[in-house]
Computed example of a mutant assay.
Amino acid sequence: MTVRWEAFLDHVKERGAYDTVQEAERAARVVLALLGAHLVGEVRARVAARLPEEFALILLNPLQSAEPLSAERFVRATAAWIEGATERTAAWDVSAVLSTVADTVGEDLLTEVLLQLPAGYDLLFGRPQPT
């Protein structure tokens, strides 16, 4: 089931403690564009199917990534794409967006997503995995 645009952004706005929906939207666009570069095939399509259409299109037409970024470098890349961001604020942005994605896609699909990503992303999604 697809979540509505407003509901998705409301969750991101609340989790990120943003002042405006526009700030939440900017974070969501950047994080989802970077995430899309790291997911492939059916998993990416299934995640997109559960997102609001505009965000699904961003996930399916990602920024190109030459190699999978570690969780730390993913946060740094997010900071580079958001004007005025620091690594600390970018970590906040990533967490607000990816924890909302985790809630949206559900545990089973999230497990498949995490299998496609380098170690450490479980923390970005707010779902620490036992080691």
Rank of each mutant, 00 (worst) to 15 (best):
G84C: 07
L60V: 02
L60F: 10
N61Y: 10
R76A: 02
R44K: 15
A7Q: 08
A56Q: 05
R73M: 03
L124V: 01
Q22L: 09
A17D: 13
P68A: 11
A7C: 04
P62R: 03
D108W: 08
T2F: 05
Q22C: 09
A90E: 13
D103A: 14
D108G: 08
P62K: 05
D10W: 00
G36M: 06
N61K: 11
R15D: 10
G126L: 12
R76L: 00
L109D: 13
I82D: 09
A37S: 07
M1H: 04
G120P: 11
L59H: 12
E72Q: 07
L9S: 05
T78S: 11
A66Q: 13
Q116D: 13
F74R: 09
E107R: 01
H11Y: 04
L32T: 10
T86C: 13
E53Y: 00
P68L: 12
G41L: 03
N61G: 11
G84V: 01
R73E: 06
A90F: 06
D108P: 08
G106F: 03
E25L: 04
G106D: 05
R15Q: 13
V43E: 14
E25C: 02
A71M: 08
V75Y: 07
V43Y: 11
T89A: 10
T2L: 05
F74S: 10
T2Y: 08
R4C: 13
V105F: 04
E23A: 15
T86S: 15
H38M: 15
R29P: 01
S70Q: 11
P52A: 05
R88Q: 06
D93N: 08
A80I: 01
L98P: 03
P130F: 15
